[in-house]
Design a protein around this nucleic acid. Structure first.
Lengths: 140, 140
DNA sequence: ATTCTTGCAAATCATTTGCACTTTA
DNA sequence: TAAAGTGCAAATGATTTGCAAGAAT
């Protein structure tokens, strides 16, 4: 269960990020989105409400959030990067039918013995297939 | 442990793929590579030996191999796709220091109950961090 | 006033496409 | 010789960069 930050400006400052209008809006968007959005999606959804917003600013902001570890890239292959707020370990399910990415609760993955000399900082588990809404539909 | 195909032309035909010179070379390259290479890497390594080779052919071939399920994309974020020959389930470790991707043997990941109505066709486990060679070095 | 942020446009990089030429069954 | 494969160059799409103008401290 995600913890919603209700004072994003304070939260951003604590992370060493100056809380500009655009950054707060993008952070709010990420908090309220469950779709692990791409930069394009963020831009297209916010642009109508912030007409002056530029794609470059969304890229700048996401890259800043990445540096400060507020967001992580969801490791799905494909041409467009998708992002998620950093959270305790959880898995993702990527639907090859509709492209949605679902959060899946899961216990921590037991670390294989092979990795004992590695410094493991992140674990990602990705399932792929069809979600219940897509299972019925043709898949040709 | 990977099974090496020593008659790639026969193998490709069995998969319904016409065994052109370039395709056999690219398949051989994938078999002998342990680096989960990108298209650029494949191209740059083969080009000196096959001067006529074109990047487009490498893309065509990889896309064909993907269709025929000979290779799978390794789901790491980043701007360049990386590929692996299809294999029984295993995990990957991505080193944020040197960019190497290691194969890690692992038991099948137990399917979370949440996914009972999903059609799960693939499971990917990705660990990230620093490999033993990079752990010592500065990380600023 | 200095520093950081934004927004535009141009640049870059990965990937795809269109098409003419070559290979091969 | 028809069908499929290759290679080049141009097109597309995502992302980054350079820079001038704007906002914040």
């Amino acid at each position: 269960m995600r913890t919603i930050v209700n004072q994003p400006e304070v939260f951003l400052r604590q992370k060493g990020i100056k809380a500009s209008f655009q950054r707060v809006r993008i952070f709010d968007y990420l908090q309220n989105s469950r779709e692990h959005p791409s930069v394009s999606k963020i831009f297209e959804d916010l642009h109508p409400h912030i007409p002056s917003l530029s794609r470059a600013t969304v890229y700048n902001t996401i890259n800043l959030f990445l540096e400060k570890h507020l967001v992580i890239p969801v490791p799905v292959e494909g041409t467009e990067a998708r992002y998620d707020l950093s959270e305790p370990i959880h898995a993702h399910f990527f639907c090859t039918g509709c492209g949605q990415i679902f959060d899946i609760d899961t216990k921590a993955f037991p670390l294989p013995a092979e990795l004992k000399d590695f410094d493991v900082t992140e674990t990602h588990v990705l399932f792929k297939g069809q979600c219940p809404q897509c299972v019925g539909k043709t898949s040709s």
